[in-house]
C-alpha cells in the first residue's frame, strides 16, 4: 500500500513542477465608473510561472455588452500580460457583474473565470417610470416617486411633459425625495406623453411615460397604422 501511494504522490509533485501555469494577479475586479462614463474597463494581469508556454484557446465574455481581449496568443515561461475586459454600460444601473471565461492549454486549470463587477451610480431612482389610465377611467392624479441616489445632491428637479395632455407637478418630499403628481386633461382619447425629468444643475436627463391606454385587446404589432399612440419625445433630448 505504501509504495503505490508514494509513487502516486511523487508523480503528482513532479507533474506540478513541470507544468505550464498562468498565475493571475486577481480574477475579480471591482470598478466604480462615474455617472457620465460610457464604459468600465477591467485589467486582469497574469504571469506564466511554469516551465512551458501557455496558449490561449478562447477568451469569451458572458454577454454582448462586454468585450475581452488578450494581448497575445502565446505566453512564454516567465512572461507577463493582461486580459482587458471592456464593459459597455449603456443604460444599465446598479450593480453589474459580468464574467470573462479564459481557456488555455494548461494541463490543469484550463478554464479561468474572470469577474468584472461595476457599481453604476444612479443620480435619480424613479418608480414607477410609467403611469397609465384606462380610456374612460376617472382622470385622477397618479404619483411618480423620485429618490436621489447616494453620493448625489439634488435640491430641485424640473419636469416637462412632451404634450399638453398631461400636467406634471413636482413636490419636494424632503430627505432627497420628490413626488411628481401627474394628471391627464381627460381620458377620452388614447394619448401618450414623455415626461422629461431633469435635476437642477445637471446635464443628465431621465424619463417617465404617461399614457391613456385603450382596451386590453389592443394590437400587439409594434408599428403600423393600428399601433397605439407612442409618447412624443421632446426635441433635443439626450440619452
Amino acid at each position: 500500500m505504501k509504495t503505490p501511494l508514494f509513487a502516486f504522490t511523487l508523480s503528482m509533485i513532479m507533474c506540478l513542477g513541470a507544468r505550464a501555469e498562468l498565475k493571475w494577479e486577481q480574477t475579480a475586479v471591482e470598478l466604480h465608473p462615474a455617472a457620465t462614463d460610457k464604459q468600465a474597463v477591467g485589467h486582469f494581469k497574469y504571469q506564466n510561472t511554469g516551465k512551458t508556454p501557455v496558449h490561449f484557446k478562447s477568451v469569451h465574455a458572458s454577454c454582448g455588452c462586454t468585450t475581452a481581449q488578450s494581448q497575445k496568443e502565446e505566453v512564454p515561461p516567465g512572461d507577463k500580460g493582461e486580459i482587458t475586459a471592456t464593459f459597455n454600460i449603456g443604460d444599465r444601473t446598479g450593480t453589474q457583474v459580468k464574467t470573462v471565461t479564459v481557456e488555455t492549454d494548461e494541463a490543469t486549470n484550463q478554464k479561468t473565470v474572470l469577474t468584472l463587477k461595476a457599481e453604476i451610480p444612479q443620480q435619480l431612482e424613479i418608480a414607477p417610470n410609467f403611469v397609465f389610465w384606462k380610456q374612460g377611467e376617472k382622470a385622477d392624479t397618479k404619483t411618480i416617486n423620485v429618490k436621489v441616489g447616494k453620493d448625489f445632491t439634488v435640491k430641485h428637479i424640473k419636469v416637462t411633459s412632451s404634450t399638453p395632455d398631461f400636467q406634471a407637478k413636482v413636490e419636494e418630499a424632503g430627505n432627497g425625495r420628490f413626488k411628481i403628481d401627474v394628471k391627464p386633461q381627460d381620458t377620452n382619447k388614447v394619448v401618450a406623453s414623455m415626461l422629461t425629468i431633469q435635476p437642477e444643475d445637471s446635464q443628465k436627463v431621465f424619463y417617465a411615460t404617461a399614457r391613456i391606454t385603450n382596451a386590453p385587446t389592443a394590437p400587439v404589432a409594434p408599428t403600423g397604422p393600428t399601433a397605439p399612440a407612442r409618447p412624443t419625445a421632446p426635441t433635443g433630448q439626450t440619452h
Binding site: N129, F130, F132, K134, A192, M194, Y207, T209, R211, T213, N214, A215, P216, T217, A218, P219, V220, A221, P222, A227, P228, A229, R230, P231, A233
Partner: peptide
Amino acid sequence: LPQFLAVWAPGK
C-alpha cells in the same frame, strides 16, 4: 422603454 410602453396594454 417608451416604445415598448406604447404597445403595452392592461391584461397583456
